[in-house]
Amino acid sequence: MTEKKYWKWKEIETHTSINDLPPVPLSLPNYGSLGETGDWRTFRPEIDKSKCNKCYICWMYCPEAVIEIDKDGYPNIDYVYCKGCMICAHECPKKAIEQVREKKEPEGE
């Protein structure tokens, strides 16, 4: 029973009040334990699907586990959490991942 209460697998929990927290000082597993780490990036990896041969080497080497495989079998990058280490672009044997500089968002958005 307790496992179900504290273990929300693949769900993002939002704590609105202190009463939502467990009674003991225990951190709950969740995505973004340090916030949206995507804004650390200087460069953004972009996958060119026409060059991709689905070898999944990018998936294997991604330390942050932000590369997910979609329905068609192509890797997809979660830009909310991707820290932009560029290991995927460097290791891709087909050079299908491009390194694109992040642009500053216009103010007011």
Binding site: P29, N30, Y31, G32, S33, L34, G35, E36, T37, W40, Y61, C62, P63, E64, A65, V66, D78, V80, Y81, K83, G84, C85, M86, I87
Partner: peptide, 20 residues
């Protein structure tokens, strides 16, 4: 995945890849 994304390890951390 057992080490969820959005944690505070540095970009390109070898230890994080090993733990994963």
């Amino acid at each position: 995945e057992y080490f969820l994304k959005g944690n505070s390890s540095c970009a390109g951390c070898g230890g994080e890849l090993a733990f994963r």
